[in-house]
Each structure stands twice: as structure tokens, then as C-alpha cells.
Design a protein around this nucleic acid. Structure first.
Length: 511
RNA sequence: GGCCGGUUCGUCUAUCGGCUAGGACAGCCCCCUUUCACGGGGCAAAGACGGGUUCGAUUCCCGUACCGGCUACCA
């Protein structure tokens, strides 16, 4: 019997959640649910200096929007509460002390200024960033170099200190990553990372191990940027005597910027004009808002779908997956090793596909909101549904519904008469005048009837239908866009259709 | 600089030693459509390089190059 799968997403609440973060959540979630396991969210707020108001709430709102609800978290509760590291502060010190007692870690009294001084002093062109390591630790002020009495005195006088792991010299440490296979490191290349900070808070390196252990995490997913510190974590697991309970690691590939170099950042979105955050994020300090996928008009289904395909596929040509399908099909073996450049065009394609494939009723709420955002109140639900049905094939983002369909709810703000004018003449004017009369007498008001009448009248006047359709369209919607003209006329009704024709005729007359 | 990771069309990817290297996005062309889409059809487009191993390498191994990540009392 193997243990129940438990995975965790461990964000630090420092701002909006971006693509990469949500994808990490998603892969955690998919793996857990595929295995019938639990998905835990633990807030890693060990850095008091980086606390950002509202960031935690934002994270949970985002998960909710995506449909990735945690089984355990600070807001969902759970048997391993609290799930906020700042509230678990007292847990960590004992483990740090235990490591010191067992000779795996030590106290270091160097001040930030001293550390900076050290780095400057030993910096050379060949070694631009000297590390607090097996060699340099000998030159610093710590419980390894100081006399026992001196250490005791400093501790006694409450001189600030940190606890650092004592990296062994020249040991090979390796593990099997679920995505990358065997990865190994030489400990001589790894520095003595701080485990417990001077303020008594653990660093990520200690907290991640302690909490993963305490919360019985079985599989740990995180971004590839964590790979270099994996040996530190491995060693902490080992030194604490928990090796047999260590989760299996999986380091996810990064999401890269579209135009070349580096991992995708918020700045790239601003620069290239696409969202990077899942939802709008307003920085409480600057009050600046960064656009999110949700507000840009993405459906959560599409957002989740496109994220899943960035680094994973099911081995077939299938690209459109619902969340339940993803859960069913997801396996780590099919996660890519290489980073993926984010392609906004493809992202939009996913949204377009999901809009086309969604039921009208599923779209209604979001589309109504899109209209409302543009100051168009929709009160007629039946009309809304009819409009969605008519235009959804040509909508990539939710806002496109407004562009494609506002004229169903209100008369066009302006009529593109410039397009009509060059080919306008008295015969056409006559035709539309007669059309008004004909439509006034119509007893049937369906698409096919309207088209039939229109064409018959055109034939009677010896006019080509083709030359009349565009003017008609512009009269009804204001420009060269929208679904089929007769569908529009049928939908807006007799009175409105006639009104719009007459209005344009008047415009053409007076200019 | 050091360490670690990665490398198939412009982009996301399939291929688990047999390939005429498949699909999707974007691009281009045609059909459908008297708007724009949708839909259908087509074109163009890739294994970083050099060595091995093998009857046979995109696939396995080793180098090189390139790209990326890390190198904080941040996560």
C-alpha cells in the first residue's frame, strides 16, 4: 500500500500570480487529482519585508476562478493547520537547533555589512560572486571559527545570528527527478545557505523541508529555478533524519518570454501587450493595475487548457481539454524538460476554440458582463442568448461580443456612410424606400422571408443583390461587420430595421 | 566566472532505433461566404554542430556551441 498522494503549491504572497505560478498549481492539481490525492496550498510568507497586502486573497481568488480549489489551505482549513508559515514560526527553530547540535549546521554572527564587505573583498573577474562556503566560512565569524566561550557570550548577549547549513566537502549528492531523471551535484559547489534568519524566521530552505515533512507531502513540484538549491534540501531532509519520508521531486520547465531570452516576467506582458497575470492585480503601493487574462476576456477553461499544453501533451494530436479530461489524462512522464516560449496568438486561439465550443448558456454571464463593462445593460436574456449564438464563432475574446453585437441592443452610434456614398444613386435610394414599405407590410419576420423579399424587390428593380447587401448591412450595424444581414434584421425586429434604414437614407440625403 | 538544466518547422509540440520527420498556432494561396468570421482544401517551414555505438540514428553515448536557471538573512 502506498501513501495517499499529497502535493502542495507554496506561493509567497508578494504580488499577482503569473502564468508560471498558475501552471505550477495546475500540474500539482492535475497530478494529485489523477492519483486521487490531496492538493494543499501553503503560504510561504517567511519574508516579512516582502509582505504585500491583498496578495494572498488574490491567490485564492485566482484559484477559484481557474476551478483549482485546494483541499487544504489557510482559507479551506485542514488537519495540518496553520498553513501560513508566518503562523508556524515557532516550529522551525527547534529543527535548526537540532541541526546545530548534531553538527550539521552552525551559528553565524556576520552582519549584512560584513557579508557585503567579504563579497567585495573576494570578488574577482573569475569569481564575481564569492560564496559563504567550506573555505570562506573559515574567515568569517561563526561558531566554527570562534572560541566556544565567545559563541556562548554572543548568544547570551542576544547578538543577532543566523543558522547556516554546514555543507560537506566534496560529496556527491544525487536524486531522481520525476521529469529530468537522475541529477547530481558536488557539495563543494554549494554554499552554506542560511536556514534560520536573524529575525527567527526560517528561510525557504528550512521551511520547505520542515513543512513538507510535517504536512506529509509525497510529491514536490516546483519551477526549474529551484534545481540548484535541491542539494541543500536533500541534505536537510537527510540531516533531520527524515530521508525515508522525503517527497519525490519534479522540477517543472520554465515559461519563457516570446522574443528570446529569459523567463517570462510581468514586464514582458507590459512591453508586448498581453497579460501575464491570471487576473487584474493592483499594486497596493503604486496603485498601478496590471491586466489579467480574466479581464482581458479569457474563459477560465481556455486559460487552464492553454497552460496545461505549455509543457505537456497526451501523446495524441488532441489540444482541447477540459479540466476533467486533463485530470484523467495527466501523467508526469509526458511533461517536457525544455522551457516553452509563451505565444499569445496561440493563447487566443485556445480562447476562441473554447468560445466556439461552449454552450450559449455557459457564456451568458460572462458576455453580459462584457457588455456591462462597455456601459451596455442587457435586460433581455432571450435576446442575449440569440446574439451569442449568432456571433460567438467570430469572437476570440469576450470583449469581441460587444464589438460584434452591440448593435443588437442599441442603434449604431455612427453610420459609415462614406463606404456607401461612392456607389450610391437614385435607383438604390428608391430601392430602400420601397424596401421600407415592403417590410412594413410583411407579416412574416424570419431570416429567410426577409432575404426572399429583399431579393425579389431587387430583381423587380433590376438591381444586383450584391450591390445592395453592403449598404443594407451598414444601415443596420454601422459598418462592415457582424453576422448575416438578414439574421440581424430578423433579430432586431421590424420596427428597428425600418427605423435604421430610414435613418441612413436621411443621412445620405442630407450630405 | 562557477554549478545545474535544456536544445525537432518562426512558436507549442509528436517521434520511446526503421522517417517520405506528423499535428496545431501564426504566414501565404484556393474554395465557401455579396461584411467579417466559421468551415473545407492546399503551400511553405525543423532534428544546433562534430565524433562515436549500430545493418540503421532525431531517438543511445561523448565532446563543442548556443540558450536558460541559480549563485541574498527572496521565494
Amino acid at each position: 500500500m502506498s501513501k495517499k498522494v499529497r502535493v502542495r503549491f507554496a506561493p509567497s504572497p508578494t504580488g499577482g500570480l503569473h502564468l508560471g505560478g498558475v501552471r505550477t498549481v495546475l500540474f500539482n492539481y492535475l497530478f494529485a487529482k489523477n492519483q486521487g490525492g490531496d492538493f494543499i496550498v501553503r503560504i510561504e510568507d517567511t519574508d516579512q519585508g516582502r509582505f504585500v497586502a491583498g496578495a494572498e486573497e488574490y491567490i485564492f481568488n485566482t484559484l477559484k476562478w481557474c476551478g483549482l480549489e485546494p483541499d487544504e489551505s489557510p482559507v479551506h482549513g485542514g488537519p495540518y493547520a496553520p498553513y501560513r508559515q508566518s503562523e508556524r514560526k515557532e516550529n522551525y527553530r527547534q529543527y535548526a537547533e537540532q541541526l546545530v547540535k548534531d553538527g550539521y549546521a552552525y551559528y553565524a554572527f556576520d552582519t549584512p555589512a560584513e557579508l557585503e564587505e567579504m563579497r567585495n573583498r573576494f570578488k574577482t573577474p573569475e569569481n564575481p560572486s564569492p560564496q559563504y562556503n567550506q573555505v570562506l566560512r573559515e574567515k568569517m565569524r561563526n561558531s566554527l571559527t570562534l572560541e566556544k566561550d565567545e559563541v556562548a557570550r554572543l548568544l547570551n548577549e542576544s547578538v543577532p545570528y543566523v543558522v547556516r547549513i554546514k555543507m560537506p566537502l566534496n560529496e556527491t549528492i544525487s536524486f531522481t527527478d520525476m521529469i529530468r531523471g537522475e541529477v547530481s551535484f558536488n557539495t563543494s559547489q554549494v554554499d552554506d545557505k542560511v536556514l534560520l534568519k536573524a529575525d527567527g524566521m526560517p528561510t525557504y530552505h528550512l521551511a520547505v523541508v520542515v513543512d513538507d515533512y510535517l504536512m506529509k507531502i509525497t510529491h514536490a513540484f516546483r519551477g526549474e529555478e529551484w534545481l540548484p538549491s535541491a542539494p541543500v534540501h536533500l541534505l536537510v531532509w537527510k540531516y533531520l533524519g527524515w530521508e525515508k519520508d522525503m517527497p519525490q521531486w519534479a522540477h517543472l520547465p520554465l515559461i519563457l518570454k516570446p522574443d528570446g531570452n529569459g523567463k517570462l516576467s510581468k514586464r514582458d506582458g507590459d512591453r508586448l501587450g498581453f497579460p501575464v497575470f491570471a487576473m487584474d492585480w493592483t499594486d497596493p503601493k503604486t496603485n498601478e493595475t496590471t491586466i489579467g487574462f480574466k479581464e482581458r476576456g479569457f474563459l477560465p477553461e481556455a486559460f487552464v487548457n492553454l497552460l496545461a499544453m505549455l509543457g505537456w501533451n497526451d501523446g495524441t494530436d488532441k489540444e482541447i481539454f477540459s479540466l476533467p479530461e486533463l485530470i484523467e489524462k495527466f501523467t508526469i512522464e509526458r511533461v517536457h524538460k525544455g522551457g516553452a516560449k509563451f505565444d499569445y496568438e496561440k493563447a487566443k486561439w485556445y480562447n476562441h476554440e473554447w468560445i466556439k465550443l461552449s454552450e450559449v448558456s455557459q457564456l451568458a454571464v460572462a458576455v453580459k458582463q462584457a457588455f456591462l463593462d462597455k456601459q451596455i445593460a442587457v435586460t433581455d436574456e432571450a435576446l442575449l442568448k440569440k446574439v451569442i449564438e449568432l456571433v460567438k464563432d467570430r469572437c476570440t475574446l469576450l470583449a469581441d461580443f460587444v464589438q460584434q453585437g452591440s448593435f443588437f441592443f442599441q442603434s449604431p452610434a455612427s453610420i459609415d456612410t462614406d463606404t456607401i456614398k461612392p456607389k450610391w444613386d437614385e435607383k438604390k435610394n428608391m430601392f430602400f424606400t420601397e424596401l421600407i414599405r415592403a417590410y412594413e407590410l410583411s407579416t412574416l419576420w424570419e431570416t429567410a422571408d426577409l432575404e426572399k423579399e429583399f431579393k425579389e424587390l431587387a430583381a423587380a428593380n433590376q438591381l444586383k443583390t450584391g450591390e445592395l447587401m453592403l449598404p443594407f448591412r451598414i444601415m443596420l450595424v454601422g459598418g462592415k461587420f457582424g453576422p448575416g444581414v438578414f439574421d440581424i434584421a430578423a433579430t432586431i425586429g421590424k420596427q428597428e430595421t425600418i427605423k435604421r434604414i430610414a435613418h441612413t437614407l436621411q443621412l445620405l440625403q442630407s450630405s
